[in-house]
Simulated assay, not measured.
Amino acid sequence: MTGERPSFDVVIIGGAMIGSAVAWWLARDPGFDGRILVVERDPSFAHASTSHTNSCIRMQFGTQVNVAIGRFGLEFIRGFRRFVGEDAPEIHFDDFGYLYLAGDAASAGRLRAAQALQARMKAGTRLLTPAQLAATFPFMAWDDVLLGSHNPGEEGCFDGGTMFSELRRRARHLGVEEIRAEATGLRMAGGRVSHVELSDGSSVACGHVVNAAGPRAATVAAMAGIVLPVEPRKRYTFIFEAEDRLPRRMPLVVDPRGIHYRSDGALYMAGCPPEIDGPCAFDDFEMDHAIWEDRIWPLLAARVPAFERIRLRNSWVGHYAYNTLDQNALLGPHPAVPNLHFANGFSGHGLQQAPAVGRGIAEHIIHGGWRSLDLSPLSVARLVEGRALTEAAVI
């Protein structure tokens, strides 16, 4: 198809979790009666970050805005039917918690500072000494750990697939339109985006554009002459079974040796970045099979002796939309292009932050600013201002 399609008030580039959350929050808002179009290059979402997520949520961040986003995300998950409709399914939430471990004094200091921040925001994070860790998790080795930070009850994994499919389906029911295409250009007029150009040769006139393109966000930003420090980075996930089952559920352990692992129903899950953690191609989902044998398994067995006898059951590779500036989301309109809104650079936190971010972007489009939750510390304007807001708690 060539030529110009009908115009839309909002065009969202990217229909995975973030794009669908923005679309749904917009469509349900009684203050908005415009037309919404979601442009998605692959509606199967076979390689989307949403499809390869470990689907977890936590309060244990080192910045106030991220803790606040986490608290609303938990409220949204627990009250899903209240937000989207009583006919919606409930979202299963397994609240085993995260367990951050510190192996040196500097890391322990960061855990203490983060826990103090979380406590001020009424999160239930508690610090555990090596003796307390050993009493709570006696099946693990603690000889190289100085401090732990654990928040059971408010952290864990949830059914992100159901949340995504329900928000997308309900957005369509509210009138959101979708098209299978790739955005190939942004046509500018008077310092604003006037049209989104599509891979089928057509174009769409728009009032606002939302960049929700995940790892491809920098490509979309470049269409407007904006440099966005977001790149795809590979993350490996492994599912395994243990011959000797542990006596209790294992929290998501963020190990100072560079891996993380948790219970996954009757099985267990582990993950890590590559040895050299740099950008990769958008279509590079090749697994490094040696990393399981050479790195993850030995570290698992050293921490959990029962994991000396385990069997790998499944594995996959996903992409982080990694913000190289400060590993925090880049949100809202860009000062140079005020009708181009960003929802990018989540660095592995996109699924859990989607409820708050979707609401925030929708409110900014409708009302011209953040309303329910002040997301200004994550404003994309910090790129122009040269202001970083570093999040240290990135896995």
Rank of each mutant, 00 (worst) to 15 (best):
G225A: 09
P338G: 08
V253Y: 00
R82S: 15
L198V: 13
L174A: 15
Y268M: 08
N344H: 05
A46N: 11
V176Y: 11
I276M: 04
M17F: 09
T2S: 06
P215E: 10
R248H: 05
F61K: 12
G358V: 01
A119R: 14
L267M: 11
A343G: 03
V196W: 12
P251D: 00
A171Q: 10
G201V: 15
V220M: 10
H260S: 00
S149D: 13
A343C: 11
P247S: 00
S263H: 03
F139K: 08
D255Y: 09
V220A: 07
P130H: 06
L389C: 00
A388R: 07
T125H: 04
V220E: 05
F282Y: 12
L37F: 12
P6C: 10
A388I: 09
Q60M: 12
S203Y: 02
E275P: 03
Q353V: 00
G3A: 12
A281I: 03
G318W: 03
G15W: 08
L117M: 12
Q352S: 14
M121F: 05
V196H: 11
A212Q: 08
D33T: 13
A141L: 14
P355S: 04
W25K: 10
V220L: 13
T219W: 09
R172S: 12
M17N: 02
L389K: 01
T50C: 13
I259W: 00
E231P: 01
R313K: 13
G369Y: 00
R359Q: 15
T63I: 15
V11I: 09
P256G: 08
V209H: 09
L146Q: 14
F139D: 12
